[in-house]
Structure formats: C-alpha cells, structure tokens
Amino acid sequence: MRPALAYLARRATGLAAVVGVSSALLGALLLFAPGSPVAEQGLAAWLGGFWRGVFAGDLGPSYRGIPVLDLVGRGAATTLPIVGFALLLSLTGALGIVLGLGDRVAALSRPLRLGLHGLSLVPVFLLGYVALVVFGVPPDGPRRWWAAVFILAVGDGTLSDVILGLDAERRRLVEQDFVHSMRLRGLPLVRRLAPHLALPLAQLLAARLVFLLSGVLVLEMVLGIQGLGLMGYRAAVKADFTLLVAIAVGLTGLVAAVQLGVDALRVAVDPRVRKDSRQTARGSV
C-alpha cells in the first residue's frame, strides 16, 4: 500500500506546484495591466497576499461589493454540477453506443453516424442559441438547466470524441491475448474488462473537461446562466482582476484535482502502480 500512497503524494505535490506556478504566471501577466493589484503591489507581494487570502477564506470585495470568494463559491455551485452532469451524460451515451453496438459502431449506418457526429460538431454556442431562439427555452428553471447539460454533453465534438475514444480503446482491448483467453474460457467479459476500460475512459473525460470549461463559459453567456463563466467574463470586462484571477486559478485547481482523481483511480485499479514493481519474484524456472 505504501508505494501507492507515495505515488499519489508525489502526484499531488506536482499538481499543486502546477496550480501555484500558474497563479504566479498569471500574476506576472497582470504586471502589464496598469491599475491591477499586481502592478501596484509587485508580483511577490501580491502572490503572497493572494494565497494567504485563499487559505484564510477572504480575498476582499469584488467590483460588485460582494466578497470575491463568495461570488466564486456561488458561481462554482452553479457551473460545476452542469459540467459534471454533462460529462456523465456524455459517458453514459457513449458507453451505451459502444458497448451496445460493439464491432458495429464502425459500420453504423452512415446517415445516423453523420447525424450524431454532425450534431456533436456544432459549437456549443450555436446549440445554445438554437435552444434559445428556436425552441424557446425559457430564461430560467430546470428546462434551461437540462438544455445546458445536454448541449455540453453533445456539442463541440464532445460526444463524438468520447464515442470514438471509447471505441478505439475497446478495439485495442479486445485484440489482447488475455481477452482471447477469457473468451475461450467463457468468462464474463464486461465485468472483467471494466477496470481495463475505466482508466482510459477517466483519462478521456479528464482531457475533455478542459474543453467543457471553455464551452460552459460561452453557454452560460448565451443562456444567461449566472455561473462561473459569465462571472469571469464580466470580471474581465470590468477589469476586476482579483475576481478574474480567483476564477482562473480556481479552474486550474479543478483540472488538477480531476487529474489527481484519475491518478487515484489508476492506483486503485492497476497493480503495477500499487506494488513496487522492482519486487520481481526470484527464481529461474
């Protein structure tokens, strides 16, 4: 167990460093914006103040008067569930299609495939617009929320990428000899192969997250959802740099946390990481 924890600790430190360095780089960038707190205080001072504020739970007021961290919290509470559910929806849809159709995914009738990928190609912004204008999605309420989740799950090529990625992994997997061995012995394939698929799938979704965060930004603005995206955009326009940095760093932190989650999954599932692989059994047999 210990090598596993050591591995995770190493990864966590690395990811924390990435977040820290990102905030420093962002601060460095803001040096060029006169009027920003960084330009006034200098990079080191501002950076120290920023992180102290984060851990103390207080980053000061935003341009709207409400404390920055409060705003970020509210925005996150709106945006994160949408992104999470969108990933889940995309995953479920892709799993259904790939596992249900198996080898036939590639041979799927052209119009259906073009249709699905075509819809997936459409930029999220446009899908949101269509929802608003054509389907008359109301400016509030659950219908709008579900529209956002569905659009994020499908648009910007998300659904298509997840399906193709999953299909490629499945095909790679079923060519492995150990899968052939399982087949000959009549073992339950789906159950046995689930851990093998879970990892690349998690990796795929984690990679997709970065794109989804771009998409949710636009979607919020199109549909008028008061989330992190809209908030960040307004902060940029109003030049409230503290709020902007808080949101940007928060997003980086989110991506890092998700990556750590994938690493934790790897540790749980793949014994090659769990055990110290230098411990090869001796014996010349």
């Binding site: 990435v18 960038l29 914006a33 006169p34 009027g35 794109f211 989804l212 326009v237 940007a248 997003l251």
Partner: peptide
C-alpha cells in the same frame, strides 16, 4: 495546456486591453 482556451484568451485579452 491546462487552461480552457476561452478562459486563456479572455484573460489575455483583458490584460492586453488594460495595458
């Protein structure tokens, strides 16, 4: 590459325009 593209672009643009 850790940054969502739109976030990066908007932030950079904001900084640029402020500058």
């Amino acid at each position: 590459s850790a940054w969502p593209r739109l976030v990066l672009v908007v932030v950079l643009l904001a900084v640029f325009l402020a500058g």
